[in-house]
């Protein structure tokens, strides 16, 4: 779609993340490489538990230190390694360079402070401005996130706002400092369907206006089709396919991607059976020697169970599959 000038902002290179619980370690992100360029929306899709959110958190340096840690790979922002930054330097990067919006706006805002004090606190943590200047910036951020009555809302508490309004506050909070990259982790999942489209639209408007690079994590393929420039499909801690949104939807190559697309119910086929991918994501403790998807794959051949496929470039993107099948609906 949007093949204009690309400037790589974030580059994730062979990222590995392990979780430890009760004395045992297991890898949940197994060598993910992904880049986010200016003025594009990259969608990261996959089932829950496949490692999408944890990959995003690691870019922000927000992995819960007591349970998870980066065990390999690199994350660069404009060519600079983020993993080597001191906590103070990382704090500056957060929301000034890379900002993040979370899934559930009902629990993501501190309930005992007003919207205004929250926004002003974040603004003043990064900018040397007076209270009244911070207030003006806060109002502007809320207005740009299309929150009605922005100035009046400064004195509201989160519980006094609806879910959609709260998510607008989250967007304002994340974009108040003009970050170059915006990571949105399922920003519409917890919202009413009627509000989802509005929030998505307002996110995309902000992204286009500011020419931000955006990483949108979702499992909703309708969202992907609506906003994505590029799509990366993740399965069990690995990227299995990556392509532009048109190529991926027209011609998915990986059986898992094909399964995801096939699972979208067709509104024109009345009372047709719903399609699901058989089986479930393997628990991270178990690592099969071959392809992670082989146990659920209809096209697996013997070598799928023996050798682990590598992510290889294709004519339109990248693919991790040794026996790709043509896609038929």
């Amino acid at each position: 779609m949007n093949q204009t000038v690309h400037d790589e902002l974030v580059e994730i290179r062979d990222l590995r993340i392990s979780i430890h619980s009760e004395g045992s370690f297991f890898e949940v992100v197994k060598g993910v490489s992904l880049s986010i360029r200016a003025n594009e929306i990259v969608c990261l899709v996959g089932e829950s538990g496949c490692g999408k959110s944890i990959t995003a958190l690691s870019v922000m340096g927000l992995l819960p230190a007591d349970v998870a840690g980066v065990t390999g790979g690199e994350i660069f922002y404009r060519g600079q390694s983020l993993l080597g930054l001191s906590p103070r330097e990382m704090r500056r990067v957060r929301s000034e360079e890379i900002a993040m919006i979370f899934q559930d706006p009902t629990t993501s805002l501190d309930p005992v402070f007003t919207i205004g004090s929250l926004l002003k606190e974040v603004i003043r943590a990064h900018r040397d401005v007076s209270r009244s200047e911070a207030e003006e910036l806060a109002v502007r951020a809320l207005e740009e996130a299309q929150l009605p009555d922005a100035r009046k809302r400064l004195r509201s508490y989160p519980h006094e706002l609806s879910g959609g309004m709260r998510q607008r506050v989250m967007i304002a909070l994340a974009t108040a400092l003009n970050p170059a990259v915006l990571i949105a982790d399922e920003p519409t999942t917890a919202l009413d369907v009627t509000v989802q489209a509005q929030i998505l639209e307002s996110l995309r408007t902000r992204q286009k206006e500011r020419k931000m690079g955006m990483l949108l994590i979702t499992h909703d393929l309708a969202v992907v089709a609506a906003v994505a420039d590029r799509v990366a499909v993740m399965y069990s801690g690995e990227i299995v396919e990556e392509a532009s949104v048109n190529d991926l939807f027209d011609n998915p190559k990986h059986p898992y991607t094909q399964g995801l697309l096939g699972a979208i119910p067709d509104i024109t086929a009345r009372r047709g059976a719903l399609h699901a991918i058989p089986g479930r994501v393997p628990p991270p403790q178990v690592t099969p020697p071959g392809c992670e998807f082989a146990p659920r794959c209809a096209h697996s051949i013997e070598s799928c169970w023996e050798e682990h496929p590598v992510l290889l470039p294709t004519s339109v993107g990248k693919l991790r599959c040794i026996n790709p099948q043509p896609y038929s609906t």
Binding site: P87, R91, R94, S95, F102, D104, T107, S108, D110
Partner: peptide, 17 residues
């Protein structure tokens, strides 16, 4: 363990705050 803690950290606030 509240979600809002993550939001505040993502906002670049110090641990102390």
């Amino acid at each position: 363990n509240n979600d809002f803690v993550r939001t505040l950290r993502a906002g670049g606030l110090s641990e102390w705050r």
